[in-house]
Amino acid sequence: MSKLLHSVNQRTQLAGENRLELLLFRLEDKQLYGINVFKVKKIITCPALTEMPGRHPIALGVANTMDGPLPILDLKLAVGHGNSENIRGKSVIVAEYNRKMQGFLVDKVEHIINLEWSDIHPPPKGVGNEHYLTAISKHQDEIIEIIDVEKIIAEIMPFNEQMDEPMSQALDTALKEKSESPEATEESKQASKQVIVVDDSVVARNQIKRCMETAGFTCTLLKNGLEAYQFLENLTMSGKKPTDDFLLMISDIEMPEMDGYTLTRRVKENPDMQGLYIILHTSLSGVFNKAMVEKVGADDFLPKFDANELANAVLERLNA
């Protein structure tokens, strides 16, 4: 296992090149699955677990590790294929999502493959259980299913999507000041209340949508970087600039077809789009994030998901 992940921390050169590496694994159903290597911290053999009272059925228990308590989740059960029959001796993929560490019980870890994000596609209708799939790809004639882990985690440990009252009031005040400014036109007033949200996870899109709508914004929801770029292209072809209609764009990084880094770079390189303010909002972690944000020209970066931090980032844009 150590050899498999030996160079994980050196793989960041793929970021921004519309490429990724997937760690492939199987569950007891023998289906091939993948997880972005950037999210994987290590792979361990399933340790002894302590069951917690009132636990969610997917949560097998908590392992005491050198890094502290680690919840272990039954990924097979989470995707609707029934309980894992025997956890002893099985592998656990330890990964970080949304600022928290989780262990995902899997039947067998295989190997790492290098792919273009353009080779990762949204799941077509009728293929697999779409309620947990966020994307699919192919490797050696096998379909790879990429699970919407954020959806699974949100069901077990729901996030607080409500911003604090002082933050809500600050946003409301900033919006009023923007609309009452002597320089404000009807178009600019409308634009200051509209944001673009780009994320392949339906859970993540709706989290942002609910947070922004609570603060009085209207959201245009898009599913991946390619869809977002085409949307912006159509806008410019109609004679508009994105800043004519939108205050900013909030984009995930990991997305099929085109990742958030590539989307940002292409927007910032396009003279008709480059004024659009972009916040990269992702469950990815690591020291490379800040450098990559600067490299591709994003205006801000936020780890998922904190309603107050997101609201504060939008507030800073309003007050700029």
Score class of each variant (00 low, 15 high):
133 L>S: 07
217 F>V: 15
127 V>K: 13
227 E>L: 05
191 A>R: 01
155 E>V: 07
82 G>P: 13
310 L>A: 05
251 S>G: 07
180 E>D: 04
306 D>H: 12
21 E>R: 09
236 T>A: 12
61 G>E: 11
278 I>K: 13
155 E>T: 13
171 L>R: 02
160 N>G: 09
166 P>R: 07
119 D>F: 03
276 L>G: 14
219 C>I: 07
42 K>H: 09
160 N>A: 11
2 S>H: 11
102 Q>N: 15
154 A>R: 06
62 V>S: 12
199 D>C: 02
312 N>A: 14
117 W>H: 13
228 A>I: 00
40 V>C: 01
220 T>A: 13
198 V>E: 00
109 V>I: 15
152 I>W: 03
35 I>E: 02
167 M>P: 04
182 P>S: 13
312 N>T: 08
112 I>T: 10
136 I>K: 04
234 N>K: 15
89 G>H: 08
140 Q>P: 04
118 S>V: 04
218 T>M: 06
227 E>S: 12
232 L>E: 13
90 K>M: 14
157 M>L: 12
127 V>D: 15
159 F>E: 15
158 P>T: 10
5 L>K: 04
15 A>H: 09
32 L>E: 01
175 L>M: 14
197 V>D: 06
220 T>C: 11
293 V>I: 05
163 M>E: 11
218 T>Q: 08
136 I>S: 05
56 H>A: 04
158 P>S: 08
302 L>T: 03
33 Y>W: 09
13 Q>Y: 15
152 I>T: 13
149 V>A: 11
312 N>C: 09
